[in-house]
């Protein structure tokens, strides 16, 4: 319940302030007070910026290290690793990230591919603790590695790699970025709300890119933009990319 006495007091005090004849300008135009207002406004502005640019992204995304590290740079050295063939990076990529005979793309190789070389859990080929973990945790138990896929699209999307890489002559790195010299796999960053990888929406939380690269984002607009730019506008029909 309101206290009638207090509330009347309060209102009377307030009323007294407003009617005080201390100057020509009304009190609210007092420069000090405006300065104070601006100060607080800027304070709010800064606070909001911190929330929006720092806290929000931190809360929005969760970061996951891959189950084990994979050293692309090491494995792409055709002198060290058997079966890495080709001159260009794309050709080298395709040594492990293969197209099957039916034209479908195998994506991340299965354990089977790894065990072509890492066949004996007892004798690792290198000395890293990562490889040891890989041997004991996966090779020994014949268990597939639960990789996080950076560029995983939702189920309704149909993306034929062969149409882009082979028929369209688009380099792997155009969309995936260059992994060839990576010694360490980047963290997998997942949007808590949507469940998608950050690589889909783009790494820049602002969403703005001055120098648009296709590897930046992988949303529907980006597919359509590229189709249009490459003169494949007819490929923007729904059933070209959706299933």
């Amino acid at each position: 319940m309101k206290d009638p006495v207090n509330s009347s007091k309060k209102s009377s005090a307030k009323g007294g302030d407003v009617s005080s004849p201390s100057g020509f300008f009304p009190r609210w135009m007092n420069i000090n007070i405006i300065a104070q207002d601006v100060g607080f406004f800027i304070l709010g502005l800064i606070g909001a910026s911190i929330v929006g640019w720092v806290i929000f992204p931190a809360v929005l995304y969760s970061k996951h290290p891959q189950p084990i590290n994979f050293n692309h740079a090491l494995h792409l050295d055709s002198e060290k690793v058997d079966g890495i063939e080709g001159e260009t990076k794309a050709e080298k990529c395709l040594s492990c990230h293969v197209f099957r005979d039916d034209g479908t793309f195998a994506g991340i190789p299965k354990l089977e591919k790894c065990t072509e070389c890492h066949d004996d859990p007892e004798s690792p080929l290198g000395e890293t603790p990562q490889e040891k973990a890989f041997m004991t945790k996966y090779v020994a138990d014949d268990k597939e590695i639960p990789w996080f896929v950076y560029s995983k699209q939702p189920d309704c999307v149909y993306f034929p790699h062969i149409a882009h890489v082979k028929m369209g002559n688009i380099d792997c790195t155009t969309c995936h970025g260059d992994f060839a010299d990576n010694e360490k796999l980047p963290l997998y960053v997942k949007n808590r709300l949507t469940g998608y990888s950050m690589n889909i929406w783009g790494e820049r939380i602002s969403g703005f890119y001055w120098n648009k690269k296709f590897s930046d984002r992988m949303k529907m607009d980006d597919c359509a933009r590229c189709h249009t730019e490459k003169g494949q506008e007819q490929n923007n029909a729904c059933f070209v990319c959706h299933k």
């Binding site: 005979d101 039916d102 479908t104 149909y158 034929p160 149409a163 028929m167 299933k243």
Partner: peptide, 28 residues
């Protein structure tokens, strides 16, 4: 083929995924 969720309309697509499949094989 994507499984559908409740609340949407669906219909025959002339198995367009088979067109995709055939095209993929042709490209290969």
């Amino acid at each position: 083929v994507s499984p559908r969720m409740r609340g949407v309309v669906e219909k025959c697509t002339f198995c367009h995924h088979r067109l995709m499949r055939a095209k993929t094989l042709a490209y290969a």
